[in-house]
Amino acid sequence: MINILPQVLVDGLTLGFMYAVVALGYTMVYGILEIINFAHGDIFMVGAFIGTEVLLISDALGALEGMNPFVALFITLIIAMVLTGALGVGIERVAYRPLRGAPRLVPLISAIGVSFLLQDLVRFTEALARNEFYLNSPALFTGSIPLGSIATIPTKGLIVIVIAIVMMIALTLFVNKTKWGIAMRAVAQDQSTASLMTINVNKVIMLTFLIGSSLGGATGVLFAQNYGTIDPYIGFILGLKAFTAAVLGGIGNLRGAMIGGVLLGLLESLSGAFMGPLTNGAFGAEYKDVFAFSILILVLLFKPEGLFGEAVKEKV
């Protein structure tokens, strides 16, 4: 049992970094607008489809032949990020902005609507174009690196982790060092005061959606590379788990989302591998989703501010 541990940890880290980047999107939007962007998981899914389509089309045109896989991945990531970023901004404009100031449940309802709409739209277009909606992504990286004799790290997993870390560092630098990042933090703290300080709140919110959605879209591309097969429904459960990660780390807190994501990925991977043997097969890997949701519920009950968030007292 112990000899599979390194492999389980490596898989858990790969999954965890993906959760972490998607969780950033949830946490940024929640930090500023205090709404759960239910459609974020589906933006991730759209990103996965855009990336796969870009690779499939350029493969069919013969453009991938002889191209450095890193360059190909970079171009794919850029295309997917631009398109999903635009999608996120569009969703904010159409489905959330008119509802600012409405009771809190109303934007949530329209967000659920957007999520369902995206799932079927993707299914619809894929069915029209390819007559099936399960896509197999062409693999850019096939090798693997042996880690001593105990585990092998597939190159694609390593690339997922590296790109995720790069994106997190870039986001942290952006939020902390640039003018727009400071504006973002100001709006998150107090919208009306920020607008008095000549910050264009609408623009900042659009920027938040742009960044969050493009990060989600990029993760989609990485997901397709890592797991190979995608379908229009991958975003929902993954989005839910990324949200769990954001809550675990403390929603609204960027560092919390990153650590929460990695933690959740590791926990899920470990429980999937060891729950079966530990309970003599009574509860196997099929309960790993139950495990993730139980974490969400436990955190919300006992430490609703999360591991790194600040407890907020409700004021009358």
Binding site: L99, P107, I109, I112, G113, V114, L118
Partner: peptide, 10 residues
Amino acid sequence: FGIMLILVAL
């Protein structure tokens, strides 16, 4: 369902 939810909410 999605379109209905969005339209009703808006």
